[in-house]
């Protein structure tokens, strides 16, 4: 069979020309495309979340009882903490009044809905863009204010958030239990690796990882996830560990863009 005749060569030339033109107008084409397909993406994302929750309920029912017990004990423990913290908050308010200090503002958040994920990277598409005040570099968090990623691109109709787990995403983090700063690397497919933890510090599964302000990327003190397992066979002065985010971003139906920091 003669696969590459005159027609095929002409078609290839047109194809290459089309690609060049598309790349010249890529942001505009992507923006229009995104705006047109947004309702379909929104519906599919919502349906995907619902269906996956249904299957998780069916196939994950075995672990649900155990998880429920763990959560009950965690809630009981947290209720004690809430009581203590409420007392501290009242004391703090009184002290702020006494010293006439400005009360700390809370984050100003914009609710956004993820509508899609890039094929080969940990980048999510959001349904709000510049029209709603979203700008490149803004922080994206979950409902419980866990850091998720950064806005990398914002068009008038939508935006893209690069997740912390995206490959080669690097940020400095703090482990408040150990009182140290380390580096968190994205490994792709929602995986995170904690690196440059001094070997003399005892890293335990369950240690919480927070954002740090050393790199001036994130607002400090936002929760990212918890240490799951220490990497075996580490050598040198530092140790590594895998970190799991506390909430599953791929199944969530709402995220928040931090419009202004306190």
């Amino acid at each position: 069979m003669r696969m590459f005749g005159t027609k095929q060569i002409a078609a290839t030339a047109i194809f290459v020309l089309l690609l060049i033109l598309l790349n010249m107008a890529a942001p505009g084409v992507r923006s229009v495309f995104f705006a047109f397909t947004l309702p379909l993406q929104r519906t599919l994302w919502q349906e995907g979340s619902d269906v996956s929750r249904f299957f998780y309920g069916v196939f994950g029912s075995k672990g649900l009882v155990e998880e429920n017990e763990k959560l009950k004990s965690a809630v009981a423990s947290l209720l004690h903490d809430v009581y203590d913290l409420e007392r501290v908050r009242l004391e703090n308010t009184e002290l702020l009044k006494a010293f006439s200090l400005r009360k700390e503002q809370s984050l100003r958040l914009l609710p956004v809905m993820p509508v899609g994920k890039e094929l080969s990277r940990d980048v999510l598409f959001l349904d709000q863009g510049q029209a709603a005040g979203v700008r490149s570099g803004m922080i994206v968090v979950t409902a419980s204010q866990e850091a998720v990623g950064l806005i990398t691109e914002a068009t008038s109709h939508g935006s893209k958030v690069r997740l912390i787990s995206d490959k080669d995403f690097v940020t400095d983090v703090s482990l408040q239990d150990l009182g140290i700063t380390a580096v968190l690397r994205g490994e792709g497919n929602f995986r995170l690796l904690l690196d440059l933890v001094p070997r003399d510090k005892t890293l335990e599964p369950g240690d919480l990882v927070f954002t740090s302000n050393l790199g001036n990327v994130f607002s400090p003190g936002l929760l990212i996830g918890k240490v799951v397992t220490k990497e075996r066979g580490d050598e040198g002065s530092f140790q590594k560990a895998s970190v799991a985010p506390l909430s599953d971003v791929s199944k969530t139906s709402v995220l928040f863009v931090v419009l202004t920091l306190p």
Binding site: G48, G116, R191
Partner: peptide
């Protein structure tokens, strides 16, 4: 469209 908007909720072994 399924790959972009539907299947991310079904990540198996985080992939």
């Amino acid at each position: 469209f399924l790959q972009v908007s539907f299947f991310p909720a079904f990540a198996f072994m985080r992939s």
